[in-house]
Design a protein around this nucleic acid. Structure first.
Length: 295
DNA sequence: TTGTGTTTTATTGCCTCC
DNA sequence: GGAGGCAATAAAACACAA
């Protein structure tokens, strides 16, 4: 890249050439790449002619104001820190607006006795510090919501295990009951057999209905919505899973439109606990819904 | 006192906007 | 093309433990 040169007027009326840019604050720009002292940067002469009014008025009210200012003046010509009051003034100004229009920059510089360039630099650095803090805060916030989400997920896993064992238990009970019924069916009257079949049908419907409720993500103890701000992924995954789940479910179990009960139920295929479990655990929206989180 | 880490002030180079 | 913003960096000032 070609080197650029900048022509500036020095505070003593001299003109100098530098390869450094001085953003719009030409007149009291530094004269070389090594810092030559703040006399070239700070026009303390302004204090005498009153242009540094507001800052120095408030500054003079401080108990140690004059001492601090004298110390500031007496420092050797090298990089110096701004005084406490200058920084305080700049901080207040930054709180009002962290951007600096040219007019405001000049006004601020006059009020605290600094070069406009120094004010601009201070705002630049202050914005950088603010951004860093903001990033740290954002990180903390994300960490917090992640922890909450993780806790929710762990609760869901526990709830799922609980419900699963409940379903297994009920399935086993139903199977046992049905087995016992078929063994003794020969001794029943036709009326008793019919009644028993009706009761079993009802139990099957209840069983299937319960599974549907657990699987569709809408009527369980937790819904995707309850997961909070970061539930987007869950919601998406779950809705996709729920769709597939419902489709699979319809194919496997649901009665057809005319009320005809699925052949699989008629064939007692659902009675096989392994079959039930494989259906339940094989849902696209089951564990896969949480596959996004890798622990 | 001195070595070391952190903060502050300032510079440089690049980019965008007008 | 000039002005101004930002990221990266230098260097002085400062804090602090050993």
């Amino acid at each position: 890249m070609a080197a650029r040169s900048f022509l500036y007027g020095g505070g003593d009326g001299s003109v100098f050439l530098t390869n450094k840019r001085v953003h719009g604050d030409s007149f009291f720009a530094p004269r070389s790449s090594s810092f030559q002292g703040t006399r070239s940067m700070v026009s303390f002469e302004d204090r005498g002619n009153g242009s540094g009014g507001q800052f120095f008025q408030s500054f003079d009210h401080e108990d140690n104001g004059d001492d601090e200012y004298d110390d500031y003046l007496q420092q050797p010509e090298k990089k110096r820190r701004l005084t406490v009051d200058q920084v305080r003034f700049l901080e207040k100004s930054f709180e009002l607006d962290n951007k600096l229009e040219p007019d405001r920059k000049i006004q601020l510089a006059k009020e605290i006795g600094l070069q406009p360039r120094q004010v601009a630099i201070w705002f630049q650095n202050r914005r950088a510090r603010w951004k860093t803090k903001q990033l740290e805060k954002d990180y903390d916030d994300l960490q917090e919501s992640y922890n909450k989400l993780k806790a929710n997920y762990e609760n869901l896993v526990k709830e799922k295990e609980k419900l699963k064992s409940e379903v297994d238990e009920l399935s086993d009970k139903l199977l046992l009951q049905e087995k016992g019924t078929s063994d003794s069916s020969s001794t029943k009257s036709p009326f008793e057999s019919l009644l028993h079949e009706q009761i079993l049908d009802h139990a099957r419907e209840e069983h299937v209905s319960k599974k549907m409720k657990m699987g569709d993500g809408k009527e369980g103890n937790f819904t995707a919505k309850e997961l909070g701000d970061s539930s987007y992924v869950f919601e998406q995954e779950q809705s996709e899973g729920s769709l597939d789940e419902e489709n699979n479910f319809s194919k496997m179990f649901l009665p057809s439109v005319d009320g005809y009960t699925s052949p699989k139920i008629e064939n007692n295929e659902y009675r096989d606990p392994h079959s039930v479990n494989s259906y339940y655990l094989g849902l696209p929206g089951d564990d896969q819904a949480f596959g996004f989180w890798s622990y």
